[in-house]
Write a protein that binds this DNA or RNA. Structure first.
Lengths: 211, 211
DNA sequence: GTGGTTGTCATACGATTGTATAGGGGCCAT
DNA sequence: ATGGCCCCTATACAATCGTATGACAACCAC
């Protein structure tokens, strides 16, 4: 009875790390923090559990890396759509809103992921800093686009009102993102986007169309 | 060396169950799902872990009971403030908004709790039903108040617009609740409430004042 | 080819998890 | 005051957790 060792391929550390991060995010989103064990993550990534300590310092480091990768992916997805919207501030604002409430940013798995990370963010100072930074970066970008769009519409936004408008606009976008993620079947396709567009338009005193 | 058994008081099953539910909610909010072990819950409640299986069927049943108790407490807190606001629809709407973005409904612990429950809600059909029901009940109440308040203002709300307005108003309230919970120090006291009031007012075409 | 590097598998370890069970003791009925 | 109910403590249990360690083999340099 000779037990044969399972066949495997050598991968670059970067690829292996990416696989492990992806597996962590998938598992965290689909089955929650309690199911994201080192064994489950390793199996999902197609390797054995020893790899986690080989490529990272331990489970915490892996989860931390996964969080940063996820946040970066979201920011990048939004930035790409904004950049592709052309020079018009109104068009870029519309693109940012659309990107925020449609896949891949807005998915039910994304909400689960966010929830799974929340208590980690709350307890790890390093993750809290990352979280606050990405939230404020998003809001600042939204605020800048609101100011520009109002300028473009010939109705300049007083600076002292900009912060409140950005917070409120961000809130309605986040709230719709949340509701769509929590009850995906309670809304028809595109309904969330048109609601987000109309709501931000009303709050900002702008007429926004789906372009 | 005779080890003495620890002293204890007999409690009614109802009281003990309540203690265990409270301990579960506290632990879940403060330290996350991974820290809410049966031993930690029992210690927090001042009993030994055997009590969880004695008073409930197991950990899952306890967590489920805790979720229902939490949702009921939130609904009740909001309903009480709305009922205390008097007959005016505008005043009741204002009270509902205030209750939704101030303690005890809006606390950073409440957000953690919500996040901790989310993946349970997603996997347990029974909890999913409870969740959807309480969300829709909240939104329906908000929609009814919006319709009444517009009527009261002499500017009736067309029925086909009511649903969209309720969803958007709910979203901005939820979004502000979320942001205040996630970054409690990024907002001054009362700022969230006045933003919520102003935003819903703008969306609904109503002038809402803090009463 | 062939040797060396190191990515990878395999296994073991102590700690902790949720659950199960046996028996002690607080408190009410009488 | 005292017997009995059942609330409660205490302990044991298998399973699983994250971590640590050592041997194997894939692949590159030469």
């Amino acid at each position: 009875m000779t037990t044969t060792r399972r066949a495997y391929r050598r991968e670059s550390p970067a690829n292996r790390r990416q696989d492990l991060v992806d597996a962590t995010l998938t598992l965290l989103a689909e089955a929650g923090p309690e199911a994201a064990t080192v064994r489950a993550i390793a199996e999902r990534a197609g390797v054995t559990q020893g790899m986690i300590r080989h490529h990272f310092n331990g489970k915490d480091a892996l989860v931390n890396a996964a969080y940063q990768a996820h946040m970066a992916a979201l920011s990048e997805a939004i930035a790409a759509q904004v950049a592709a919207a052309g020079p018009s501030a109104t068009a870029r604002l519309t693109a940012m809103i659309r990107a925020s409430v449609t896949p891949p940013v807005a998915e039910s798995t994304g909400l689960s992921l966010w929830a799974g990370f929340l208590h980690l963010v709350r307890q790890s100072p390093a993750m809290a800093v990352t979280h606050e930074a990405s939230y404020l970066a998003y809001r600042d970008q939204l605020q800048a686009l609101l100011v520009e769009a109002r300028q473009e519409a010939g109705n300049p936004l007083p600076e002292e009102e900009a912060r409140a408008l950005a917070i409120a606009s961000n809130a309605v976008i986040d709230g719709l993102w949340l509701e769509a993620g929590a009850l995906p079947e309670a809304f028809s396709p595109g309904e969330i986007f048109s609601l987000a567009l109309a709501s931000v338009g009303t709050l900002a005193g702008l007429t926004l169309t789906p372009s």
